[in-house]
Design a protein around this nucleic acid. Structure first.
Lengths: 144, 144
DNA sequence: AAAGATTGAGTCTTCAATCTTT
DNA sequence: AAAGATTGAAGACTCAATCTTT
């Protein structure tokens, strides 16, 4: 039975929706202003960097990033065209591929992190205390 | 001076980014599944409903919604084509227009709210206590 | 038939350029 | 020249259909 949400629930929702168009888009703007690729590129590069030598298959990346499959497919196209990611044949399952980050991808990921970290610090770190940030992270984790 | 963000700050950031692709997109999906327009339409309709008889000028709507101007322009095109919003000439300043919600727009806004409220309740209300929701709203408000 | 992944066509978004009024 | 608003063209996203391998 879905009840009508109470005011606090609606206020939390509005906060999430506005954070999206506020803080998230300001971070995105800072990356762009620095001549860097969008956030989604960072996420892919970072997942692949963590995956190491063996890379990741698209469906695994999809899960990690909460992305739709068709969405990811063209995102990887762009990363591949930019030389940051490589598609390799997958021997165990010939339906799929393995995705690996390239040397250039590793370098780009590090470069992006400098601007990205500064933007996160401005948007979050400068506005919340340590303990507020911890609380926020814990509450948002409940919405997963 | 921008320091490097601490772990709690980064965790809060990741939570916001994931809430966007998780909770927000699930709400969007529920509206779509009910055959209703996207969230952005709701926001415009609601702002115009609150504005009442006098309507709102695009630049004011822009500020309220944190939208880009060119983005809003075509969004309003679609709402107008659907008969939910009307553009009227603005007498005080002939550069601009006034936007007003129509009768059909009022009805559609109410219809959307039924599905929207149920989705918010599922995504937020069912997962957080009242006091958690209040805390979350207060923390997100600090990021504005 | 189901899972992994991609693609064509249509819609929406973005950037830069434009137009009008102040 | 600046503010309010729109538009053309290019890029990104979405849905449904497709293809291959399991």
């Amino acid at each position: 039975m879905t009840r009508t949400p109470d005011d606090a629930t609606v206020a939390a929702w509005i906060g999430i929706a506005r954070a999206q168009r506020g803080a998230v888009s300001r971070v995105e703007l800072r990356l762009k202003a620095a001549g860097l690729p969008p956030l989604a590129w960072y996420d892919v590069l970072w997942e692949l960097e963590k995956a190491g030598e063996e890379g990741l298959r698209p469906y695994a990346l999809e899960k990690a990033m909460l992305f739709e499959q068709y969405n990811l497919s063209r995102l990887v196209d762009r990363l591949e065209k930019a030389g940051l990611v490589a598609r390799r044949a997958c021997l165990e399952d010939r339906r799929g591929h393995r995705l690996m980050i390239t040397e250039a991808g590793l370098a780009e990921r590090r470069l992006m992190w400098d601007a990205y970290a500064a933007a996160i610090e401005r948007e979050i770190g400068a506005r919340l205390t340590l303990s507020e940030a911890r609380t926020l992270a814990a509450l948002l984790a409940k919405l997963e």
